[in-house]
Simulated assay, not measured.
Amino acid sequence: MDRAIDALHAAAAPLTTGELLAAAGSAGSVRTAVQKLSADDRLIRTGRNQWALAGTGQTPYSPLATKSTAAPRHRRQPPALPPATELLRPPHTD
């Protein structure tokens, strides 16, 4: 963790999880790294895959705060069917 902190000090900008793993000289999994980074109070998550030093004025990442700019999707309505009584009536013959 201390090497990751040193890398963030040197970069003076947020770094990705992979960059922090490389700076720490770790070949561990990204999932384990994210758990350790999340548990350290000296760091904040600034993006889905970005980390910065706490207290640097970076905005913390919150996946629930992000909103989609796409138009809402509407379900396609099924075609209108005649009333059930029309469906059950025998065919008309002349």
Rank of each mutant, 00 (worst) to 15 (best):
P79E: 09
V34L: 11
L53Y: 05
R45T: 03
Q50D: 11
A23N: 11
K67H: 10
T85P: 04
P83C: 05
T32P: 00
P91D: 14
N49R: 03
A80L: 13
L87R: 15
H74W: 05
Q58Y: 06
Q35K: 08
D2R: 12
L8C: 00
R89C: 14
A11C: 04
D2C: 02
A12Y: 00
S29I: 03
A52P: 07
R45I: 05
P83I: 02
T85A: 14
T32H: 08
H74R: 10
D6L: 09
R31I: 06
V34D: 10
L64W: 02
G28L: 06
M1F: 03
T56G: 11
T17S: 12
R73C: 08
L8M: 00
A4F: 01
Q58V: 01
G25E: 15
A13P: 00
R3N: 11
T69H: 09
H9T: 02
I44T: 09
P79I: 06
A24N: 12
L43W: 10
I44L: 13
S62D: 15
A4Y: 00
D94P: 14
A71D: 14
T46C: 08
G18S: 13
P91R: 15
G25C: 14
S29D: 06
G28H: 11
R31W: 03
L8R: 00
V30D: 08
D41H: 07
A52H: 01
L21R: 12
D94R: 11
Q77A: 13
R31Y: 08
A7D: 05
Q50V: 00
S26M: 09
A52Y: 00
A71C: 04
L64Y: 07
I5W: 02
P78E: 13
P82G: 10
T16E: 05
T56E: 13
Q35C: 02
Q50W: 04
P83V: 02
E19S: 05
R31F: 06
L81E: 15
A7G: 04
L21G: 02
Q58P: 03
A33V: 02
G47K: 06
A84L: 13
D40W: 08
T17N: 01
G47V: 07
P63H: 07
P72V: 07
A4Q: 07
P83Q: 04
L88Q: 15
E86S: 14
A22N: 12
D6N: 06
G55A: 09
A11T: 01
A22I: 03
P90M: 11
S62K: 01
L53C: 07
V34T: 11
L87K: 12
L8I: 00
D2E: 15
L64F: 07
V34I: 13
K67F: 09
A39V: 03
L20C: 05
A39H: 08
P72K: 03
T85M: 06
A71I: 03
D41C: 03
T93M: 03
A7E: 05
A22F: 04
I44M: 10
T93F: 12
L53S: 06
